[in-house]
Nucleic acid binder design. Structure first.
Lengths: 234, 234
DNA sequence: AAAAACCATATTGTATACAATTATAGTAAA
DNA sequence: TTTACTATAATTGTATACAATATGGTTTTT
């Protein structure tokens, strides 16, 4: 540890709450700024967030509960590297749960809810033509979370939210060969079925959509590069 | 804090791992030894498990992630008191997820798997005639967890496991008017459908079974009594 | 006597100190 | 040059100390 490091104050003087730290790291993972395998050192995180290791540790434990990071005793915390099996199970779980959510959505969604979804999809289109890859990915994932929330079962919505986050980890680890366009187009088709209140078709489309995303994945040999922690979380 | 307290060693000299503490508390809640609303003081737990508050705190955070306890900032940790809405959502989520699991079970279960389930049900019967209320409840819940595990999707199995634990909290908070017999009988009927590989009927039976459990719940006015922590966790 | 204010006590929140483990680097031997 | 070993540094695991907050009981006031 250099003298400079000791003398310098934490670069960002912000003092964060534990939940805020969890949110920031989860966000960075979902935005694919922190690649699978990246080491999350406790002191390094503490410096970045301006807190002691105590809080960082609590945050890491929470994230481990959501499977976004993996704690190896004595070694530390690492962004999870999802196994092939785990990936398949996540997609299957999503088909089951989100299929049910779509059905519920058709039942309970108001015109306003559907309008909200339409606006979300419009935003996706804008991000695809102009925005960053990060905002694209975030919006494509949020689509599913929003649907779950509207469907009105908070328990299922939370599960979906966790699975969506894990999915973005999976699609980074196994680079996906599909463009954002493909997903966005399928979202549009799903919306069309929802507008017609065609439950059966909507459920089928959602299931197929998730299968398509899964099929687009391939094993990569080269691990994604691990960037500087501070820039990923800043 | 009395002098006696300071002089006396922790009653149980065991030193536990964080995960072991989580398991013990979760177990006690599932076994309905710790009623909703019970206060879980950090120092008290530390004394019981022979560790410092640091480890206890980690355990409490993990349990909060599973919604078994609720952390109120500055006030402490309490066994969760599930709201009516939350309870409905848990049952609905279980119908969705366990319906899918039953279908998968029929597909993948070997003769041996079904035999295991049959043996489990036999054990339920024994517990109902002779065992304690606690072991009855545990077995009735485990039935669902076992099915999820056999079905072979670890992601869904873990979700089910969490929902089962929350359910036992719900059935304690809202005292259920059904006997253990009723559930056990429905388990038997489900098994019968599974043996015939009748997917459709099995899914229906599972869904109805969960609905029946839910229907048996009633709001109680009197909060369950909170026993001594040490006896509940010992 | 009831309510409010205050003090003492207990409990939680956070940081830090120390112990134990793991990684790293340097040196020596093959 | 590679491998094995050892010493040192860095990191994690745990406990403890201290600060901040909440609790409960006593006194004071109305």
């Amino acid at each position: 540890m250099s003298v400079v490091r000791v003398l310098r104050k934490p670069a960002t003087a912000m003092v964060m709450d534990t939940d805020a730290i969890v949110a920031r790291i989860a966000e960075a993972i979902a935005a694919q700024k922190l690649p699978p395998g990246a080491k999350l050192g406790e002191e390094a995180l503490g410096d970045i967030f301006g807190v002691s290791r105590t809080k960082v540790r609590q945050a890491l434990f929470q994230l481990a509960g959501d499977k976004l990071i993996t704690l190896i005793p004595g070694r530390g915390a690492f962004v999870t590297q999802p196994s092939v099996r785990e990936s398949k199970e996540v997609f299957e779980a999503r088909r089951v749960i989100e299929g049910a959510i779509v059905a519920r959505f058709v039942e309970v969604a108001t015109t306003k809810d559907i309008e909200m979804l339409r606006e979300h999809i419009a935003e996706e289109a804008r991000a695809i033509s102009g925005g960053s890859a990060q905002s694209r990915n975030r919006l494509l994932g949020d689509f599913h979370t929003v649907m779950a929330e509207v469907a009105g079962n908070a328990v299922l919505a939370e599960v979906v939210s966790e699975l969506v986050a894990r999915t973005s980890l999976i699609t980074l680890f196994y680079q996906n060969t599909r463009g954002a366009n493909d997903s966005a187009e399928e979202h549009r088709q799903l919306l069309s079925a929802l507008e017609k209140r065609d439950t059966k078709r909507a459920v089928t489309l959602m299931s197929e959509h998730l299968s398509n995303v899964e099929k687009g994945l391939v094993l990569r040999e080269d691990a994604p590069a691990a960037p500087d922690l501070r820039s990923a979380l800043g």
